[in-house]
C-alpha cells in the first residue's frame, strides 16, 4: 500500500446508505497521484454516489476518505467546499454550465471560486488548447454537445487541480466522440499532472486508463 502522501485517492472501508438500503460498500480504492483509473459498474451500483463521497459532497456512514493526503472527515462544511474547489476538478455527464454566463465567464468563475489567483491569460490559453478559442463569448445554450463538454473540462482544469473526477463523460456520445472525450480528459490531466478518476458504465472505456476498478451492485 502506498503512503497517503503519494495517493491522490485513498478510500478505505467505505459504507454509505439510506436507512435500510446500502448504496456503496467498498473495502479499498486507491489512485496514485498523476495516475488514471476507471471505475466501471452497471447502473445502480453506486458509482455516482461513490464519486460524491470522494468529492466530499456527501459524507460516508463509515470508513475514511483521504484525498491528496487530507482526511475529508477532518474538514468542516465550508472547509470541505474550499478544499474541493481548490484541489478537485469535476466533470459531470450533464455539464451544468451556468446558462447566465458566457463560456469565458463560466471558466473564470471556476477559477475564482477555487481560490487560486485569477489568471485571465491561463483561461485564454486553456480555451484555445481545447479548441474553444472563438467561442469565448458564446452562451452555453449556443454550444454543441461536444463544445459544451470541452467547456466543462476547461472549467474542471482551470485552477490546476491535482485530482480530476468525471462522471459518465462518454455515455451520451457516439464512439468517435467518446474516444476523443476520454483522450482529452487524459491529455488534460497529464498536462497539469493531475490524477484522473472516471466513473462510468460505458464498456468502451475499458483499456483506456491506467487501471480499472469494478463495482458491483451491493447486496
Amino acid at each position: 500500500m502506498s503512503s497517503s502522501a503519494t495517493l491522490a485517492i485513498d478510500a478505505v472501508d467505505l459504507d454509505f446508505g439510506y436507512r435500510d438500503r446500502t448504496v456503496v460498500r467498498m473495502e479499498q480504492c486507491q489512485v496514485e497521484r498523476g495516475r488514471s483509473m476507471a471505475v466501471i459498474g452497471p447502473s445502480g451500483c453506486g458509482k455516482t454516489t461513490f464519486l460524491h463521497l470522494l468529492a466530499g459532497l456527501i459524507r460516508p456512514g463509515s470508513g475514511t476518505v483521504r484525498i491528496l493526503g487530507q482526511d475529508l472527515a477532518e474538514l468542516s462544511g465550508a472547509e470541505l467546499d474550499r478544499f474541493r474547489g481548490r484541489n478537485i476538478g469535476l466533470v459531470f455527464q450533464r455539464f451544468h454550465l451556468l446558462p447566465a454566463l458566457n463560456v469565458r465567464d463560466n471558466v473564470l468563475l471556476a477559477q475564482r471560486l477555487s481560490g487560486v489567483r485569477v489568471d485571465a491569460a491561463r483561461v485564454t490559453t486553456l480555451l484555445e488548447q481545447l479548441d474553444l478559442g472563438g467561442l469565448e463569448h458564446h452562451k452555453p445554450s449556443m454550444l454543441s454537445q461536444g463544445q459544451a463538454q470541452r467547456v466543462a473540462i476547461a472549467r474542471a482544469l482551470v485552477h490546476g487541480p491535482e485530482l480530476i473526477m468525471a462522471d459518465e463523460p462518454t455515455s451520451a456520445l457516439d464512439d468517435r466522440h467518446a474516444e476523443r472525450a476520454l483522450a482529452l480528459l487524459q491529455e488534460s490531466a497529464q498536462t497539469v499532472g493531475a490524477a484522473l478518476l472516471v466513473v462510468t458504465h460505458d464498456q468502451r472505456v475499458r483499456g483506456s486508463l491506467d487501471s480499472e476498478f469494478e463495482m458491483e451492485v451491493p447486496a
Partner: peptide, 15 residues
C-alpha cells in the same frame, strides 16, 4: 438547483 450544486462543486460555500 443544478447551477447551485455546481457552484458548490466549484468551491462555493452554502453561505
Amino acid at each position: 438547483r443544478g447551477d447551485l450544486a455546481i457552484l458548490r462543486c466549484l468551491g462555493a460555500t452554502r453561505w
